[in-house]
Structure formats: C-alpha cells, structure tokens
Design a protein around this nucleic acid. Structure first.
Lengths: 232, 232
DNA sequence: GTCAAGGTAATTGTCGACAATCGACATCCG
DNA sequence: CGGATGTCGATTGTCGACAATTACCTTGAC
C-alpha cells in the first residue's frame, strides 16, 4: 500500500527545455526583446551556456503559445501584434471564456472555486496597491481568468486559454499600462465572482463579456494610437 | 516592381520535418499505430532513413495537434481517447464553430465562400458514393467545417479548429464508421449552407449546433459502447 | 545612379555520438 | 514467499560538427 499522505510530493522535474522556454517567454513578455526581433539559436544557446537543440525545442514550444513565429530556413522571430490582431484575440477570448463560465455555473464545482477566486481578487488588489509592477498586474489579471477556464470542467477551455494567454500578456505589456486605475481594474472582477456565486449563468456570461469587452475596447483603442504614433 | 498576379505561387518548400510529421499523422489517423502505442524516435528515424532530430521535432508538432502525447524522459505516445474526452472535444467544437459561423454571416465574405462550400458538399456526396474509404469521408467532412472557420474572418477560429481537427479525425476513425448512412451525412451539411446563403445568423448557428450536436451524440454513444466491449 | 549578378559570411537544417534517465529483471533479506 | 534493493538494457536528453540555405555586401554593367 501507499502512504495516503506522502511526506514528499512529486518533484517537478522540468527539464532544460522548459527552463529555457520560460526564460525566453519572460524576456519577450517583459519587453527585453522587441517584437519582430530575430531570435538567433546560436546566440541564445551561447548566452545560456547550452547547445542549440534545447533552444530550438523551447522556441517551438513558444511558437504554440503565440509568442514566437517560425519561418522555415529563416529562424524564429518575436511575434508582432497589430491592433486588428489584438481585436481578434479579444473577440476569441470572449467566446472561450463566456462558454467556460457558463459551463462552470451549470456543471462545474463552484463551491471549490470560490475561495480561489477570492484569493485571486485579493491578489489583484495587492498588486494594484503596489502600483508600479506592470507585469505582476497583468499576470494577476490573467490568473483570475485562468481560474474560470480551469473550473469549467472541460479542459479544452483551459488549453485554449493557455494558448493565447502569453499573447494577451504581450499585448498588454506593449500598451504599457493596464487600466487608467489599477484599483478599478481589480474591482471590475468582483461582479464576475458575484454572478458565479449566485449560480447565475446568464449574469455570469454577461459580466465576463462586459469585462473582457471593455478591456478589448481599451486595448484596441490604445494600441491603435500607438501604431499611429510609431508608424512602422 | 513585382508581378501583382504571378504565374507561379510560392513553392511550398516543406522541409524534412513537415514531411515526417505528415507521415506520422497519417499513420496514426489511419490506425496503423494504435492509441497508447509508444513512438520510438530511434525506430521511426531508422525506418525513414533520417536522424532523430527531425523525428523529434515532428513529434512535437503532432503534440500540438493533439495526436501525440509527450512525457518527459519517456518519449512520445499516441494519444488515447475516452468517450468523456470526445464529448469535451465536441462541446468545444460547438462553441468554436457556432461563433465562427455567426461571425461569418455577420461580417465575413459569404459571397466568396458559397462556391467553395458547394464544391465541398459535392465532394461529400462523391466520397459517400464511393462508400468504403473511411478516411476520405472523414477528411471531406472536416474540410467543410474548416471552410466555415476560415471564412469567419477571424483567424483565431481557424487556428483553434486546426488544433483539434486531427484529434477529431482520430476519434471518428476509431469508431470505424461516420454515420449510419454516408449519404445522409453528406446531406446534413446542406441546411448549414442554406442558412449561410440566407445570411440568417441565428439559423446558421442553430444549424451547425444541431449538426455537430447530433454527431456528438452519435460519436459519444458509439465510443462508450466500444469502451465497454474492449475494457482497458 | 540604379539595378542585376556573384561571392561571401552567417544562420538554420540535419546528423551521429555520448551522457542521463527510465523500466524491467534479477537478487537479496525478512 | 513478499517486498525492497541493485543492476542492466534501452530510450530519451543533450551536445558539437558538418551540410544546406539564406541574407548581405561587393562588384560590375548600363
């Protein structure tokens, strides 16, 4: 028999590839490498002190999450975003997340999810008070939405969300600020939580569509003005 | 200046990796390697007369399309499907494709898409008459649905569809037959086409939800009985 | 001065080899 | 005889090197 309450949990043995991928993703999202920039396998491999093989595999991983684009015989490049692409992205998010939240309320484990949602909302307020760490704010926001997809009960929604999460982060970081008021941003998640707690499917979908929709408007507008300011 | 309408399009120079990936995907979907089977890099590389590197990259590609599962330090395995997973898959397809068809009718280029839909429906009838080539039927079916996602105007829907297309094919092939009557299957696409042509957004979403929903029911039921017949 | 052609440097594509890790069998102890 | 431990073969993980392709720069003609 096995110990029902083991003293040691399974050790996360993420290999070299995952670590490299994480480093690259962070460098891109944090803006240390600019969109459109070439990602030289040799250079990155040399910098990290590893061979090209893991770098190449990591880059392919990042390609799936939309951060990187691959062109045959040319290499990997940091994904460039347009306001139109961001608009499409947000439209897609609305579809995914409203379906996820509807399923969550209808058939998911709301009881188990609520404390996690509350904790995440608390985290949102915490980083809002700190105020200056943009990346933390973005990630706290995305973590909240990820919880909803995770709690839906259909892993497809979570997979779809994870695929576009990094790209969304990149877009938000490019804009340079999340909302006019970080506090208001944190508070805008509360109605979603309330509708879930009330098992109000229609209200929940409406709340999240409103939430993402206003973010979509804000992001697209702001990005468009950036494009005009810095014409390619 | 360049020829605005070149006589020769860009030649698809799919490298070794893509060819290997295609071969592997076909072998899996066609059922030549069974679900759960190990995909030995060395063996495949030796069989194809190439090194392990392209095989490994191809396997990672197939992982993204859901055909293959990767376990660190253990290798690649053909994805196993359960009736529950298939049910989740079809639920997700309904969400994606009904959103895509709604956008298509509302803002897509219906005029340009209609002839392609008609051609695909004709192809569906053609393979239905042939009758015995299951893979062809499955692929003709998926191609029709892909057209809708492609015509939606938001490439996100197409990307999401392509990611789950191979997995859907695999599920259908595992079942061993598409519908009771291939002819009826072909005909069941006509109402979708009609609603699109009429620019009836509500009717189109209803038609495609009905279409995929009945397939979902059929597939899930049939797969469940298979599971009971061959208990793991 | 502009454009095309050729050569060259740099990068990716592929390969074979070695090291690390895993699963299974044999072995040892209670 | 049951369970834990040690060992072995096989497979993946990573590496450095060579071949193929690309992009850039130089050269030359008009």
């Amino acid at each position: 028999m096995h110990d029902p309450d083991p003293a040691f949990g399974p050790l996360a043995r993420d290999g070299l590839v995952d670590r490299v991928a994480g480093l690259m993703a962070e460098a891109i999202v944090a803006g240390r490498v600019l969109p459109g920039a070439r990602l030289s396998e040799s250079t990155i491999a040399r910098d990290l002190g590893v061979s090209r093989a893991p770098v190449r595999e990591a880059a392919r991983l990042l390609e799936n999450s939309g951060l990187v684009r691959y062109r045959p015989n040319r290499g990997f490049f940091v994904r460039t975003l347009s306001s139109a692409a961001l608009d499409n992205l947000y439209e897609f998010r609305i579809v995914i997340e409203s379906a996820a939240i509807a399923r969550l309320v209808a058939r998911g484990d709301v009881e188990a999810l609520l404390p996690r949602l509350d904790a995440q909302i608390a985290e949102l307020y915490r980083v809002a008070e700190a105020g200056d760490d943009m990346l933390r704010q973005v990630e706290a926001d995305m973590a909240f939405h990820r919880l909803i997809c995770e709690g839906s009960g259909n892993p497809r929604y979570l997979a779809a969300f994870d695929q576009i999460a990094n790209e969304t982060k990149l877009g938000l970081m490019l804009i340079g600020r999340l909302y006019d008021s970080p506090r208001r941003m944190a508070g805008s998640h509360v109605p979603i939580r309330a509708a879930i707690a009330a098992r109000d499917a229609q209200g929940a979908t409406a709340a999240i569509e409103d939430h993402i929709g206003s973010a979509r408007h804000m992001v697209t507008e702001r990005f468009r003005s950036l494009e005009e300011g810095h014409p390619a």
